[in-house]
């Protein structure tokens, strides 16, 4: 059985270590926060906050307190606020240990495309280009194939890039793959999924 969204998020949470400062992207990456367990993880929200707490209780929403997805959130005892230039100073400066992001396409060289579909989706890259250029480790969580059953792990990305050679680890519904020098390495398969299943579902070179 391939992993569902929550199982992919839970698997991504295993990559996080005690004491890490981490940035979570929108979508499945946001769910990772539900699976960190007892680990001491500080979440950064790039609109200017370290120590992001859960959603507020109904009636306690604060318009001055949102995350990078513009959702209302809460603060924690450890929370610190800062401006956007300082926020991206810590991202670009390599102070954030890891970012967990979604993707449209990833190449076997670790190129990432997740911000634009020419002629269709032109919303902007937000902070994604800064994150992949600056943080210690880039972990991508994504479906292995698109709706048409085509591999999203490619030899070369076809969409405009967010970053070149930036992805370290890919977690899909089928398993976990690491970006190596000559292609992708299978680290783990989802339950009931074989190496051959992953190879058959992947366009990128698997070594």
């Amino acid at each position: 059985m391939p992993w569902d969204r929550n199982q992919m998020a839970a698997r991504a949470a295993q990559e996080l270590e005690d004491g890490m400062y981490v940035n979570l992207g929108i979508g499945i990456p946001t769910l990772v926060a539900n699976y960190v367990g007892d680990k001491d993880i500080t979440l950064q929200s790039e609109n200017g906050m370290l120590g992001m707490g859960p959603f507020p209780f109904e009636g306690e929403e604060d318009p001055d307190l949102i995350n990078a997805g513009k959702q209302t959130i809460t603060e924690l005892p450890r929370t610190a606020y800062f401006d956007s230039a300082t926020s991206f100073g810590m991202i670009r400066g390599g102070k954030i240990a890891a970012a967990i992001l979604g993707a449209m396409e990833v190449s076997e060289k670790g190129d990432l495309a997740n911000w634009m579909i020419p002629g269709k989706l032109v919303k902007g890259m937000g902070g994604a280009m800064d994150l992949v250029a600056g943080v210690g480790r880039v972990i991508v969580v994504m479906d292995h194939q698109n709706k048409h059953g085509e591999s999203k792990l490619l030899k070369d990305c076809t969409l405009p890039l967010t970053g070149k050679g930036v992805v370290d680890l890919i977690i899909t519904n089928l398993g976990v793959l690491e970006v190596g020098h000559k292609g992708l390495h299978i680290v783990e398969c989802a339950p009931g999924v074989s190496h051959d299943d992953i190879r058959a579902a992947t366009e990128a070179t698997i070594v």
Binding site: S84, S87, G89, I91, M129, A133
Partner: peptide, 24 residues
């Protein structure tokens, strides 16, 4: 990129006409 935009503003305010970044 969001961080580049923020830094471009900060730099302008600090009298810095340009800076190098690996973003992008």
């Amino acid at each position: 990129p969001q961080g580049t935009l923020a830094e471009r503003m900060r730099a302008g305010g600090a009298g810095i006409p340009g800076f190098y970044t690996k973003t992008g």
